[in-house]
C-alpha cells in the first residue's frame, strides 16, 4: 500500500497531494497521514466527492486515512458522480435573493443590480448557474430591465434558474422570460455542489 505523509503540511496541500497520488494510481489503496482534524476532513471529503471509499483511524493525534481506488468493472459499478466534480468545474454559483443590490435606497439598489449584471457579461469568469429567489425573480420575468444582459449570459452557457415558489408568490409564473423554473431541492444541490456560491 502506498503511503503519503502529509504531517505538518498546511491546507490545502494534503488534498492536492492526495489528488495527485490517486490520479497516478490505477487502483489500490493509499494511506494518507495527516496531523489535524481539518486536514482529515478535507481529505475524506475529497475522497467522497470522487466516489472513493475510505476509512480512517486516529492514533496519537495522527489520522491514518486509507482510501480505496477501485477500477470500475462496468458502468453499473461506476459511482454516480456529480458533473461539476468530474469536470473540475471551478465556476461559482450566484444566488440572487433580491431585485436590488445591497441594502439601502432601492432606486440605487436597482441601478447597482443592472450595473452588476452588465459587468458580469463582460467578466472572464462566468458563473455556472445563476439562481433567482424571492424578489430576485423580478429580474427574470416581464418588466425586467436586465433581460438583455441575462440573455447574453445564457448564450455564454450560464444556467438561469428561477425559484418556482417565488414566481408563484409574486404572480409571475406565466411571465418568465428566461431560463427555467426550479425548486428548493435543486437550489440546495446546485449550491452544495458548487466550489463557491456568491450570494447577492
Amino acid at each position: 500500500m502506498k503511503r503519503l505523509d502529509c504531517k505538518g503540511l498546511a491546507c490545502p496541500k494534503p488534498v492536492i497531494l492526495t489528488k495527485k497520488e490517486l490520479e497516478a494510481m490505477d487502483s489500490g489503496e493509499l494511506e494518507v497521514v495527516v496531523d489535524n482534524e481539518t486536514a482529515k476532513e478535507n481529505v475524506t471529503k475529497f475522497a467522497k466527492s470522487q466516489g472513493y471509499s475510505f476509512e480512517y483511524t486516529e492514533k496519537d493525534g495522527l489520522y491514518y486515512i486509507i482510501i480505496k481506488k477501485v477500477q470500475p468493472k462496468d458502468a453499473e459499478e461506476c459511482p454516480v458522480m456529480d458533473f461539476d466534480v468530474i469536470s473540475g468545474d471551478k465556476r461559482p454559483v450566484i444566488l440572487i435573493g433580491s431585485n436590488v443590490l445591497g441594502k439601502g435606497d432601492d432606486r440605487l439598489g436597482s441601478a447597482l443590480m443592472k450595473s452588476y449584471i452588465y459587468a458580469l457579461t463582460e467578466s472572464d469568469v462566468m458563473p455556472s448557474t445563476m439562481i433567482f429567489i424571492n424578489s430576485g425573480v423580478k429580474l427574470t420575468t416581464e418588466g425586467s430591465e436586465v433581460i438583455d444582459s441575462l440573455k447574453t449570459l445564457e448564450s455564454q452557457g450560464v444556467e438561469i434558474l428561477s425559484c418556482g415558489t417565488c414566481l408563484d408568490f409574486y404572480g409571475l409564473k406565466e411571465k418568465l422570460l428566461i431560463g427555467s423554473i426550479t425548486n428548493m431541492y435543486t437550489i440546495v444541490e446546485k449550491m452544495n455542489n458548487a466550489p463557491n456560491t456568491i450570494k447577492l
Binding site: R107, L108, A111, K114, S115, Y118, A119, D148
Partner: peptide, 20 residues
Amino acid sequence: FAMQAESVLKELDIDGQIVP
C-alpha cells in the same frame, strides 16, 4: 444624475442601459 438620466430616457422610450 445617472439614475435621473435613466428615467428621462425611459420616459421618452429611448433605450438606455445602466452599466458600470
